[in-house]
Design a protein around this nucleic acid. Sequence first.
DNA 1: CTCTAATCGAGACGGTACGTCGCGTCTTACG
DNA 2: CGTAAGACGCGACGTACCGTCTCGATTAGAG
Lengths: 207, 207, 207, 207
Amino acid sequence: MAKPTKLKSNLRDTVAHNIEVPASSTSKDARALRSGQALRAGLLSLLERKPFEQITVREICKEANVHYATFFRHHPTKEALLDSIATDEIAQLNKLTLAIRAADNYEAGFQALCAYVDEHRSLWSILLNGGAGSAMREEWVHQSQLVAAREKPIASWLPTELGTICAATWIAETLAWWLAQPPRAYSVDDIAKILYRMLATSIMAPD
Amino acid sequence: MAKPTKLKSNLRDTVAHNIEVPASSTSKDARALRSGQALRAGLLSLLERKPFEQITVREICKEANVHYATFFRHHPTKEALLDSIATDEIAQLNKLTLAIRAADNYEAGFQALCAYVDEHRSLWSILLNGGAGSAMREEWVHQSQLVAAREKPIASWLPTELGTICAATWIAETLAWWLAQPPRAYSVDDIAKILYRMLATSIMAPD
Amino acid sequence: MAKPTKLKSNLRDTVAHNIEVPASSTSKDARALRSGQALRAGLLSLLERKPFEQITVREICKEANVHYATFFRHHPTKEALLDSIATDEIAQLNKLTLAIRAADNYEAGFQALCAYVDEHRSLWSILLNGGAGSAMREEWVHQSQLVAAREKPIASWLPTELGTICAATWIAETLAWWLAQPPRAYSVDDIAKILYRMLATSIMAPD
Amino acid sequence: MAKPTKLKSNLRDTVAHNIEVPASSTSKDARALRSGQALRAGLLSLLERKPFEQITVREICKEANVHYATFFRHHPTKEALLDSIATDEIAQLNKLTLAIRAADNYEAGFQALCAYVDEHRSLWSILLNGGAGSAMREEWVHQSQLVAAREKPIASWLPTELGTICAATWIAETLAWWLAQPPRAYSVDDIAKILYRMLATSIMAPD
DNA sequence: CTCTAATCGAGACGGTACGTCGCGTCTTACG
DNA sequence: CGTAAGACGCGACGTACCGTCTCGATTAGAG
């Protein structure tokens, strides 16, 4: 059954837009770059204050000082903008997440993951605890599924797909909780240890 | 930070409606009951086919054969309707979920939980995997937090709040995954065992 | 070849509107009537000041104190509104115009025509000399053609079709010119005589 | 009262353009000439198929294989382009039209007029019966008025101004009708005779 | 036969109007 | 005389052209 607000899904569902070709990636015009970045910043700024669904394209444009029509020259819909913001970071993070399994040293992997998030604390705080939290979680699980599909299962007692879901969900939720705590309540080490212990004793536990 | 699509939050955010007093709870009129149930059934029916945000009040009314204006005599908004559908079931389920901790026999607790869901398979399939999945998950976690706040922590190495989040999320995700599988692929027993193994050895484990 | 701004043609060209059924004719709601009349008056008022093509639906609505979306609940396009204003009057006038040929007394026919226009001087002043002048002329010729097609030709030296065009055009142009003159510069009688002399001795003259 | 789509009026109404100086007249560059001619041809080609108002600057450019921005280096607006196409021809034709009154031999004058139009049949077919028909008629009457203002009236029973309007309108309508007929249905001679007979027996008739 | 300046293609951008859609309120007229 | 039907104001949606404005890349035509 369709996950409603999944970013990728929404992206795929968008009908053809006849306007102009979105210039998101290939543009070399300095103006286009400035507009694109302003829109990103504008959306992130709004996500600190209100849920994504209540954010209007017009609001993003006003926040970014970019004309309404210009928005659609960059992104076919506001979901696409959120996705283009999120995809890079999620992919980056997912790389670390999945690297954990490949590495011999799980603990070091979690350590790297948490350190990375800590370095981009404000951004990830918005992404996970801001107005797009649930969309981000879904996208996270989705991307994890894609990557995990190419790996071999771990615990035989736990269906691979479900295992991936739980692992991804667990990491995302933990990080979200962490970022919602007072600044220095928990160190990178603390969280890495929690993550490790939880996964090692449950999902990754041998049969 | 605000959870965006949380049902209760949305409910609380609704501004005053000058129309008539919502008849959802206090009404004794037979017609009002019939309308209320028709609206519930209508929304559930639509949730099987499309995401909640894309469902229109007018659609619900058409599905329920209820006049548009009548909808607002029962619920101030469509979120309120979804909430009124979900709250009861979630509370019911949450009672079972939390009862697991109280019970001496964890496995029996999970068994009861899964059996209950299995009995209401089609409803829960819609709620968890239908168009309101993410809202349901958030509401679930939210209610779990409320209940768990009154209990005493278990594992000292795991912050209580995070433990609750993890337990609620994992159960919800596991059930959602289960309900998305082919009808009889996994038995009530299978899922209960998985849940037990996942949770009992980690969250509920002593320090 | 297609007459571009012909009102009827534009009407026919309009694609399907999915909004709600236009309530122009059958509505009994007092509010709908008030909106409809306000829109008519608004357009006429604007036509005194600027060409039809430069008039915007939004302007009409502002002038009429009617919401933009409401416009389309009455008319699929601004051309349709103009048409619904014009058709009645043109048909009325055309009846008189064509009646001239049927009557024994041409002069009396022209007299009646001019008297009618004089009675609705301000309206016709707007229609013929306002911002919709050329559209009105084209519609006039068009309707004349339709009616004349059912009559038998008069002067053999002049192709019927061309004769009709000429008659309709001349009458329209003469009336337009008349209405543009200072109020009492020419009497109803003067114009009736001019029309009679122009048309009776040429178009209606036998071979 | 303002004639709405009159080309000259539209031209006069255009606000200052800060772009570059229009190269239409003063340019000697071969490239500029080529662009200018391509735009003229493009507009005429489109006018065969659709009304002027529905033609887009971008369409003209695509038709002419000229870049959009280049259009404005030649003409401030599409009306200006149409005007620059039409003015020459109308002036040419008007010269012949007015020459009729000066010449002793009216019939020869009409003959010359019709012959000229016949020679440029395809162009005038577009101008009069194409998508800019009504604008052309209005411009025609307008120019006729300007020239006629310097002449002395003919028939005392007919106000000069109205006489000019009717004459110009009559000629324009007749030519338009002629050009809309099958290629060789009416000869140059036929039309010249019709024009002559109509005007001689009505507008030009002595008191 | 350069080289300088005019011309052009490409396209991002701010604007304004379009017509559609769903919302929630509120009036009516009907049964 | 209460309720359905639905007109209405509202405001966001996404599209379409508009005309302005950099930019480089050519390509004349004057020195």
